[in-house]
Simulated scan of single mutants.
Amino acid sequence: MKTLNPLIVVFFIILSSCNKEKTESKKQWFKGNLHTHSYWSDGDEFPEVIMDWYKSNGYQFLALTDHNTLAEGDKWKTISKDSIYQNAFKNYLNTYGDDWVNYRVDSLNRTQVKLKTYEEYRPKFEEDGKFLIIQSEEITDGYNGKPIHINATNVKRKIDPQGGNSVLEVMQNNLDEVAKHKEEFGTPIIAHINHPNFGYAISLEDMIALKNEQFFEVYNGHPHVNNSGNDEHISTELMWDYINIAYIENNKPIMYGLATDDSHHYHRKGRKWSNAGRGWIMVQADTLSAKSLINAMETGQFYASTGVELSDLTFENNRLSVAVKTNENTTYKIAFIGCKKGQGEPETLASFESDKASFEIAKDMLFVRCKITSSKLHENPIEDLLFEKAWTQPYRFSE
């Protein structure tokens, strides 16, 4: 029997190692927001201005998610006579020029502007490897006055709200419709449940009963969505843990948590307004494409943030490790939160006053996630969420 030359074996080992390092080195972190509104629905700004803001503020991807609509076809927006919006229109016209801006003045002396479609504004801002715009929609439905909103990311056509005879049925019908859309077009699409505590419309029981859903907003930057809950309703963060306790016990996939802006207001800033820049996700992917980003998210390779940025996030040999990109005169609290098998209640398993920490997940734990809280105040907070934070996804013990 002929044997391989030892030098050849060593060569292939080195080559394999180099290829592995090359593959791993390709992965990078991309910052993005998957919940944004414009003049196409109830936002108060032109898509181009919104794209420019996010691109100029360090984001690499953005989804415009207007209610039950895509930026397509003809739509004329009548500009409010409020001086804020009149001045904003003048700035828009001065920035983009008469060749780009299509507007008219009607018989009542009102300025009307034809909104640019996704196909029109997209090439103006997208740059390969630098900035990506993902066509998306907020499917806006309800039941008995309760708002039920689900974002569909990377859609190819508008998805109509499906309705139903209960909160759960409305949610499931819309999720199933997104799944059909995904199958029809053969393209990566994700749906995520928006702000479950908005109007306290979606209960923990509703979330637990869902089928084939892995994403929801643990943080939403709108001032009226009750992330923190109240005396009668739990916070979305605590809801997240209870969902995963139930999911794991019922052999369902992990629920992942997003942070989003849900931005509507671009001219007034403060607690009363739904502003840009409050919450986002950081996705670790090999390329800046919708397919790559969605594939990474579906395997939990992302974290949510309202200001804290990580320099390291690894899970190897059942050890979850994090390190923070530090700011001067800022301290950090790193908490590992999870649940042990058979207990049914989440708890803080370990806590560190440090900018880096790690935690080994034991076999008797259902899951462990990490929450990092900064001593730095959020520059534009909502509710009682005063300090910048980040949340990793939950991790499970693997044999």
Results as ranks from 00 to 15, higher is better:
357 A>F: 03
182 K>W: 02
328 E>T: 14
146 K>R: 11
120 E>N: 11
105 V>K: 07
233 H>R: 08
56 S>P: 00
176 D>G: 06
283 V>A: 04
149 H>P: 00
328 E>R: 15
298 E>R: 14
196 P>R: 05
7 L>M: 12
82 D>R: 10
1 M>K: 10
262 D>F: 00
339 C>I: 02
242 Y>H: 14
105 V>Q: 01
342 G>K: 09
306 T>W: 09
125 F>Q: 07
49 V>K: 15
303 Y>T: 06
31 K>M: 10
318 N>I: 14
318 N>G: 14
259 A>N: 02
246 A>E: 11
364 D>Q: 12
25 S>C: 11
35 H>S: 03
139 I>T: 05
302 F>S: 11
248 I>E: 01
193 I>N: 04
251 N>L: 10
113 V>Q: 04
165 N>W: 05
99 D>N: 13
201 A>R: 02
192 H>P: 00
112 Q>Y: 01
8 I>Q: 15
130 K>Y: 03
87 N>R: 08
303 Y>E: 07
255 M>N: 07
366 L>H: 02
315 F>R: 10
26 K>Y: 01
198 F>W: 14
375 S>W: 00
111 T>L: 10
184 E>R: 09
209 A>S: 15
158 K>D: 10
381 P>V: 06
84 I>K: 03
261 D>E: 01
356 K>I: 07
245 I>P: 11
82 D>Q: 09
115 L>K: 06
128 D>Q: 14
256 Y>N: 10
215 F>R: 11
83 S>G: 00
4 L>Q: 12
185 F>E: 03
120 E>Q: 14
144 N>E: 13
